[in-house]
């Protein structure tokens, strides 16, 4: 082996080792969260403010709610920030979380083609709309990935008195992917899809899609945040993680959330003081 090759090898090996250590020593936490918070740009807005205040880097791993909770269960995240209250309460009951704090809500909207084959556009009644979609057999894209949005969708079918597992036909397509992929699929096939408003507002490939149903109370989407239980996973950075949670629910954090707008439209509504949320 000549000198140059040897030097190159040493340099690469050294940088490999160094990189691992350098990142490990940073003041940082891993937050398992959902695609909606990331794709909507909310984290891009909040994290620089938190970093300036606390000097802590927040590394967001954006997954579906189900996957985010699993990541936390394995001890691979310090904080989990998701939107599926029953799943979060189960997580707490299993002892993986310390305490759940409500943070904010946004709302789901039903998106559909402008041609509106189910004839539901402009309605404020999500249950009637879903019934119409099923009755007409209009194409519907489901996330099918156990995410918070998927769970909310399943719950809405149940409220509409439809057993979707049994009643679904070829018009109901489960794609098993994130919100963006579901919107892309709906856009490409002119189908209806349930989406969170934040992702929709920042989504660019809309094609012929528009909002079909919005404003129904049953479409509200509550976000909660939890510290992963250090008793289950000693590697959890409990002080840094708690600082992030405390900031989110502080008046400063709540105001920052309310201030985030796309095209002048507010995406998330802080409600940490709503004890039932």
């Amino acid at each position: 082996m000549n000198m140059l090759t040897r030097r190159l090898l040493i340099a690469v090996t050294a940088s490999f080792v160094f990189a691992g250590h350098a990142f490990a020593q940073d003041k940082s936490i891993v937050v398992a969260s959902t695609t909606s918070t990331q794709d909507s740009g909310l984290f891009g807005h909040l994290l620089p403010m938190f970093k300036a205040k606390a000097g802590i880097d927040v590394k967001v791993v954006a997954q579906g709610t189900g996957q985010a909770l699993d990541t936390a269960r394995r001890g691979d995240a310090d904080v989990v920030f998701v939107h599926a209250k029953p799943a979060e309460e189960k997580f707490l009951a299993e002892g993986f979380g310390v305490k759940r704090y409500p943070v904010m809500y946004n709302d789901f909207i039903l998106i559909g083609p402008k041609a509106d084959p189910a004839g539901i556009r402009g309605s404020r009644d999500i249950v009637a709309a879903l019934s119409a979609i099923k009755a007409k057999g209009a194409d519907f894209i489901s996330r099918g990935d156990k995410s918070g949005t998927h769970q909310a969708e399943l719950n809405l079918w149940k409220v509409a008195g439809i057993d979707i597992a049994k009643d679904k036909g070829p018009w109901y397509k489960e794609i098993g992917q994130g919100m963006g992929a579901a919107l892309n699929t709906a856009s490409a096939s002119n189908a209806y899809v349930l989406a969170d408003r934040g992702t929709w507002l920042s989504f660019k490939n809309r094609g012929d899609l528009a909002i079909a149903v919005e404003g129904d109370k049953r479409l509200f989407n509550q976000y909660g945040v939890m510290l992963v239980n250090p008793e289950k996973h000693p590697s959890v950075k409990k002080d840094l993680g708690q600082q992030f949670i405390d900031w989110l629910v502080s008046s400063e954090g709540q105001k920052a959330i309310a201030d985030y707008k796309i095209n002048g439209e507010q995406l998330f509504y802080p409600n940490t003081n709503d004890s039932g949320a």
């Binding site: 490999f16 691992g20 490990a24 891993v30 001890g75 691979d76 996973h233 590697s235």
Partner: peptide, 17 residues
């Protein structure tokens, strides 16, 4: 590499390493 996995103690998951 997961914290619950055999090499979890190194904390390498979600890093460039």
């Amino acid at each position: 590499l997961s914290r619950s996995g055999p090499l979890g103690a190194f904390g390498l998951l979600f890093t460039p390493s």
